[in-house]
Simulated scan of single mutants.
Amino acid sequence: MRVGFVQYCPAFLQMETNRQVLAALLEGIEADLLVLPELCLTGYFFTSSEEAHAAAESIPDGPTTAWLTTLSQRTGAILVAGLPERDGAQYYNSAVVVGPRGYIGHYRKVHLFYEEKLHFQAGNLGFPVFTVTDRSGETYKLGVMICFDWYFPEAARTLALQGADVIAHPANLVRPDCPRAMPIRALENHVFTITANRYGSESNGRETLSFIGQSLICDPMGRILAQAPKVGDAVEVVEIHPAEARNRRITQHNDLFADRRPEHYQLS
Rank of each mutant, 00 (worst) to 15 (best):
L125P: 00
A186H: 04
E188V: 11
L112C: 06
F152H: 13
Y107E: 10
V129H: 08
D134H: 09
M145Y: 01
S136W: 05
L173R: 09
V132H: 08
D134E: 11
G126C: 06
S94Y: 01
F127L: 12
P170T: 12
G102V: 05
G102K: 07
E188L: 04
Q90I: 01
V144I: 15
T131H: 11
E115G: 01
D149K: 07
F120C: 05
T139R: 13
P128V: 09
F148V: 04
D165Q: 15
K109W: 00
A155L: 03
P153I: 07
V97D: 03
A122D: 07
E188A: 01
L159M: 07
M182F: 12
N172T: 14
L125N: 13
F130Y: 15
I167T: 03
A122N: 06
A155W: 00
I184D: 01
A164Q: 02
L161R: 13
L142V: 11
Q121H: 10
K117I: 14
T158L: 09
Y151T: 08
I184H: 02
R101E: 10
Y140I: 07
H106V: 02
G123W: 00
Y92N: 06
I146N: 04
Y91W: 13
C178Q: 03
E115Y: 12
A160R: 05
A181R: 08
E115D: 15
V96G: 04
Y92K: 04
Y103W: 08
A164P: 02
E138Q: 15
F130I: 04
A181H: 06
V129L: 09
C147M: 07
G143D: 06
E138R: 14
Y140S: 06
E154L: 11
Q162G: 04
P176D: 15
Y151M: 07
N93V: 08
A156N: 00
L112W: 05
L187M: 11
G126D: 10
G88A: 09
A155Y: 00
P176A: 02
N172L: 04
V129C: 09
H106S: 11
R101N: 07
A89L: 14
K117V: 12
